[in-house]
Amino acid sequence: MNKISDENVDVNALKLKKGDLVKEVEDLCGENLFGCYQCGTCSAGCPFVEDMDLSPDEVIRYVILDKKEVLNSKTIWLCAACYTCAERCPRDINITKIMEALRQIILRKNIDRTNLTDIPMEEKGSIPQLAFVCLFRKNVG
């Protein structure tokens, strides 16, 4: 059963500095993923969970088990850093930062998620500016 259908990034070709994905992630975000009890609080409260291929707790599990395909998960790009999971996690794990670390692993390989030229002109006129800055910060390294 493969939950992740995207193959945008060749995860096996990504050279991870620390070898294990979990070490790389922990290094970037400073969170200890092994403190997770897999209780599902983060996922139950996530506003985007319905559109995700992996729920946030599954993302943590994948990283722990060194399943690198997690880097192709939609989830990490759907996370809008609303911090609800981080606020409620009984183990005080900042899942928001874990998601960012996973994005950064890709972005720092100069792989962009968003192609700026794809955004239609009329949208550029009406959407609040801060949305664009935010999007670029999240999706274009």
């Binding site: 599902g40 996922s43 729920s55």
Partner: peptide, 11 residues
């Protein structure tokens, strides 16, 4: 109550 049944995986 909003929860994830972690044994079925369903929200």
């Amino acid at each position: 109550i909003k929860y994830k049944d972690t044994l079925t995986g369903k929200i």
